[in-house]
Amino acid sequence: MRRIMIATVLSVAALALALAVVVGDLPDPVATHFGPDGSADGFSDRSTLWVTTLGIPAVVAGLLTVLTSALPASLPRGVRWVRGIPVGIVWTVGGIMLATLWPQRGLSDASDVRVAGSAIVLGLSLGIAATLAASRLAPVVDPPETTGRAPAGLPRADLADDATALWQGTTPPGRFATWLTVGLVGAGLVAGILTAWWLGLVLVAVGLLPLAGARFRVTIGPASVQVSGWLGGWPRLAVPLATVTAARASTMRAFEYGGPGLRLAVGQPITAVVTGTGPALDLVRTDDSMVRISLVEADRAAAVVNSLLDRRGHSARPDGATDGPG
């Protein structure tokens, strides 16, 4: 996390430098809000730019740095990009701000400026790229590996001793996420037709994000449990079985971790894939962290995982194994 913090501070410093370069050439007052057609409809004193352009993203990035530093050290593979969000926020807001300020250089009256909607698209693109790049700075930490069997008393699947198994299931469809997507994409299409294309594009792009968390495919194999979302398999999460000690079926509420989707519980070592209230597969890891996944057939999945855990370095079936569903 220290590297991410340094990257966040350097990003804020770069934004401050960029602002210092352009601020002297800007009109006063400066245009700070724009209508759908790109014309300025809101103005601020030039001196306030240090607060709006630099202070706000710096404070937000600082808060997100505190939040992300509270995440468990061993996040499942595939969600480590979350650690780069503080840096991404600085580049997103900074990118949008600078893209709207840059055309105002040398103008005597800010009302003459027109800003292309692509400024927002540019800012979002910069933010995504910066998030992914910064997340690579975080060290990859996996929980310790184990070859132990799952605890006796947990359900097992009826697998032959020498069998290799693949189990695949899906999460229940997430109604909340689906309706959110329908609403945002619909609003985006209307906005794109009636106002500005870029506004529609941004709304449609943002609207597709909840769809990614509306339904997931869960694949269990001897090596890992893989969870992949709808949008080309994204978001994708992988939990190596070597880091799992037990699997259980439980129940998870839709808003237990703040809402549906891929959730990282701050202050708790829990990563959750939530699509709604219902059955869930709980994977307990060797560092006592847990991955919880909404799953239609959570009991079957837990039985398969436990059977696969038993096979790590062993060929015989465990004593007391119950014949779970298969």
Partner: peptide
Amino acid sequence: MLLTIDVGDD
């Protein structure tokens, strides 16, 4: 859905 293969199967 569970798919299995068994190395002991001919």
